[in-house]
Structures are given as structure tokens and as C-alpha cells.
């Protein structure tokens, strides 16, 4: 059973501003692919296009879930979630005035996800014990690291096959970044997920990535076929280390 994602010649923008310029990328079954690039290069916009939140102006996005290929064009976000694709949005976007448990239950809003709600909730509490302790607490009153765990757990409640993660390290202390990245690897292996992760923190991202793309000004400037490829690439040296 294959779960994969394919983006071909994708263009998108906001009004007159073009953000994505003919982006093409592939995430194959069971892979962790990272999307590298500094702020304002279009990583989040690409994620939002895949989820149907930002409409593309050209190009094609398709996803194969359990061996069945779906064209994502023109689908509403909730329909894309229904297919088994979930996005962990950037910046720990929670429902701060709802409790931890309510946040998790909202992840299972779709009817397809509601069926497995008890089992998924149990999985989430097993993976993130801290959330079980705080289930009645308001989400907005937790620490940054705990909030990031909750956004990951909420995405898992949708029972995804393909998980998109947008900048999991943003605004977290270095030790928590390491912890978060480790958790993502653990989840990926535990649930057999296919993962596309946008990240600025190059060193952390390639710890768990099988391969990656470098996006600069809305274009894919480099495609690294392996971890080593990315680590030795000149463009990355220039972008990240100023060399």
C-alpha cells in the first residue's frame, strides 16, 4: 500500500505577488523528505497549497493514499484531511481557549476520523504522556514545547497517512528542537507515515530526512538525493553558513 505525494509545476501567490514558481517535488512511500530554505521562500505557501488553503494558479498536486491516486485540485481543506493528509501548521497554532482534550478531539472532527477516536486518543496519550496529565488544562496555558507536542498529536488524531509539518522548530529552545525532531522520527516509524517537513534548522532536519529539496525565492534550486548530498552541497553552505 503506497502513500505518496507529487507536486508538478506548481505556481501560486497572493494577489500580484508570485510566491511559488514552477515547483515540482515528490515524496515517495515511507520517506521523510525535508524542504529546506530560509524565511519567506515559499515553504509555508507550498504546504498551504497542498492542503487546499491557498489556491494554486498553475500546476498539479496529486496524492496517492493506500495505492489510490487523487488529484487534490479544487478540493476543500476538510476533504484533503479526509483523504489522509494532515498539516501541522507553523508556529504551534492551537485552540488556546479550549482544553488539551478538546484540541485533540477537534483533530478527529471528520466523520472518518471519529470512528477511531478512542484508539487514536489512547495512542496520542501513550506517545505524549504529558498531554494525558494535562488533558483538562487550557491549551494556551502550556509551555511552548508542550504546545508543539499538542499540535503534532492533534494532527495524528486525523489518522493521517501523509503528514506535512511546517517548521516544527520555530520558537523552541534548542533542547526542545532536538526533542521535537526525535518525536517526529518516532511517530513516523510508529505510524508508518510519509512525511514532508519544511524546516530552517538544517542540522536538525537532516538528522531524520532521507533526502530533501532546497527552495529559494519560490523555486526548487537544489534536489539532494540523500542526506550526504545535502550536507555537502555548496548552496546549502552558502545559505546556512555564509560560506
Amino acid at each position: 500500500m503506497g502513500n505518496s505525494l507529487r507536486v508538478e509545476g506548481l505556481c501560486a501567490g497572493y494577489g500580484a505577488v508570485q510566491v511559488l514558481d514552477r515547483i515540482s517535488l515528490v515524496v515517495k512511500d515511507g520517506e521523510t523528505v525535508t524542504l529546506l530554505g530560509t524565511n519567506g521562500n515559499g515553504k509555508s505557501t507550498l504546504m498551504k497549497c497542498i492542503m487546499g488553503i491557498v489556491p494554486p494558479s498553475a500546476g498539479r498536486i496529486s496524492a496517492t493514499v493506500d495505492g489510490v491516486e487523487h488529484d487534490l485540485a479544487g478540493r476543500a481543506p476538510e476533504q484533503i484531511v479526509d483523504l489522509g493528509i494532515a498539516l501541522v501548521p507553523e508556529g504551534r497554532r492551537l485552540f488556546p481557549r479550549l482544553t488539551v482534550e478538546e484540541n485533540l478531539l477537534l483533530g478527529a472532527y471528520r466523520r472518518s476520523a471519529r470512528a477511531a477516536i478512542a484508539r487514536n486518543l489512547e495512542f496520542c496519550f501513550e506517545t505524549f504522556p504529558v498531554l494525558a496529565e494535562r488533558r483538562r488544562q487550557l491549551a494556551g496555558s502550556m509551555s511552548g514545547g508542550e504546545q508543539q507536542m499538542l499540535t503534532l498529536a492533534r494532527a495524528l488524531m486525523t489518522a493521517p497517512k501523509i503528514l506535512l509539518i511546517d517548521e516544527p522548530s520555530v520558537g523552541l529552545a534548542p533542547i526542545l528542537v532536538i526533542h521535537t525532531i526525535d518525536k517526529i522520527r518516532e511517530l513516523k516509524e510508529g505510524y508508518g507515515l510519509t512525511v514532508l517537513m519544511a524546516e530552517q534548522n538544517f542540522n536538525q532536519a537532516i538528522r531524520i530526512a532521507d533526502r530533501g529539496y532546497v527552495i529559494v525565492h519560490g523555486r526548487i534550486e537544489y534536489e539532494g538525493a540523500s542526506r550526504e548530498d545535502l550536507a555537502n552541497n555548496e548552496l546549502i553552505h552558502k545559505l546556512y553558513m555564509g560560506l
Binding site: A86, L87, R93, P96, R97, L98, Y109
Partner: peptide, 19 residues
């Protein structure tokens, strides 16, 4: 609960599959 999600964070609500 879906409405409360929209109120708190509409983007996150969309990502969670709230119509």
C-alpha cells in the same frame, strides 16, 4: 466545538479538517 476552533484559530481548524 468546530465553531470554537474557528474562533481560536481558523487556519488550525482547517488543518484539523473542520469544514
Amino acid at each position: 466545538r468546530g465553531l470554537a476552533a474557528i474562533r481560536d484559530d481558523e487556519l488550525a481548524a482547517e488543518c484539523s479538517g473542520v469544514p
